[in-house]
Amino acid sequence: MSIKLKRGLWVVVADGEKALFLRNQGDNKFPKLEVVYEMEQENPPTREQGTDKPGRYAEGPRSAIEDTDWHRLNKERFAIDIADRLYKLAHRGEFDAVVLIAPPQVLGEMRQKLHKEVDEKIQAEIPKTLTNHTISDIENLLRAA
């Protein structure tokens, strides 16, 4: 995979709780990513979100209903929020090309929700968790890709 780090390229680094929208102010040889927008969602573990006991269908040994995974559902909702934000930015002509960097599951959720207008501008997808990395670490990864 070869990523052309042209000036103005957007890079979205996300996980299930945080997203950084970065714009390259440099070039292919010397990328200089600057934060344009940041999104965060508080998403505690499911055990801290749901307190009810699982429901039951009827009496019997296999009657329990599986607990809702609130943590996973919030990650999916956050992926939808990121996809919506990307659509609004693309629709306003804010970027011509974008690179998505997220864990595989989040990337999959986002991909399902992306509008065609955004999908056409995706230059690359990198299935990694980089939200806790520095901007220079992200620049180095992109340069190496």
Rank of each mutant, 00 (worst) to 15 (best):
D119G: 14
D27R: 05
L9R: 06
R72G: 00
D96S: 11
L130N: 01
D27N: 13
W70F: 14
L73N: 04
A58G: 01
E66V: 10
N140Y: 14
R85N: 12
L22T: 11
K121L: 03
G8P: 04
D96V: 00
K128P: 08
G60C: 03
F95W: 13
L107D: 03
I65T: 01
H133E: 13
A79G: 01
P45L: 01
D52V: 09
R111M: 13
K88Q: 13
A102V: 08
K116M: 08
V11N: 04
A83R: 07
T46V: 01
E34I: 14
N24G: 10
K75V: 00
L100H: 06
F30R: 11
L100T: 04
V13M: 06
R111H: 11
Q123G: 04
R85V: 10
R77M: 10
F78E: 02
E117Q: 04
W70M: 09
D15E: 07
I138R: 12
L89T: 09
E117L: 12
L142Q: 09
D52K: 12
E40Y: 15
K88V: 09
A79E: 01
L86E: 04
R77V: 04
K32H: 15
D67Q: 09
K18R: 15
M110P: 06
K32N: 14
G93L: 04
R77C: 08
E17H: 08
P61S: 07
I101T: 07
